[in-house]
Amino acid sequence: MPRSNIKGQDFTDDPPWGTMDSEPEQSPPRGGTDETQNIQQLGTPDVPSVSSDVHCLSIIGQVEGHMVLPSQNKTTKYEHVIPQLVAVEQNSDIRGLLILLNTVGGDVEAGLAISEMIAGISKPTVSVVLGGGHSIGIPIAVAADVSYIAPSATMTIHPIRLSGQVLGVPQTYEYLDKMQDRVVQFVVSHSGIDGKEYRRLMFRTGQLARDIGTILVGNDAVQERLIDRVGGIGQAVDHLYDMMNSINNPHQPPPEQPVGPNQGPGPPLQPGRGGS
């Protein structure tokens, strides 16, 4: 780290919040003061302390399920996410859930389980697809009451297959087809996309170099009615707070209301529910 002071000011002593030229060896054991560590790790000496009634679930890297993936994969683990979702549902201080996705896909059953958990949460949920929400990331994205996609984010719809091999055994094909059906039915029932259209996108040729399928970029996903809106974190959080404020007042207990399976109290933004 350069010794020069970046602001060009003369300090006779280090200011209480630390300086950019603090060096690690000057810091006390165990990584130094909070200020020094903040500068080293976050590039800023001070971070605000806030409490939030909105919790945030990040689905990043590979969705890891029954099989432990090699350690170079960044993964979101089923056994972490499911209890977190239970805690979000049960903790009365948490009034809404934001789901951020940047995933390349992963385990189908773990992804479906996470999707069903999100869909079953009785509090308002909003998802945002940021970099990518591919493969099994699609049902997770559409599981929320309202889904957003960043303009530059992409979603790859392609069939469940193992590395493009030709399947000669009918039972194996049936198994994959059933697995596929579970995903398609979930996506169709939680988004506006039509089942036939979804399958058409899934089996389209000429889009992907090594597979069949379709890449939907930002607005494409909204045009196909897979995702509700194009937007970023600001719009998503605003929408979440709108939904939270419309169902209860934070100073009063929420009204008793029956909650059906896969149906949150948010606005009914799932026109394709049940269609296939």
Partner: peptide, 13 residues
């Protein structure tokens, strides 16, 4: 079963 856009050898190596 994995359903991912990454080639299986990339995930498993």
């Amino acid at each position: 079963m994995l359903w991912t856009i990454y080639p299986m050898q990339t995930v498993m190596s």
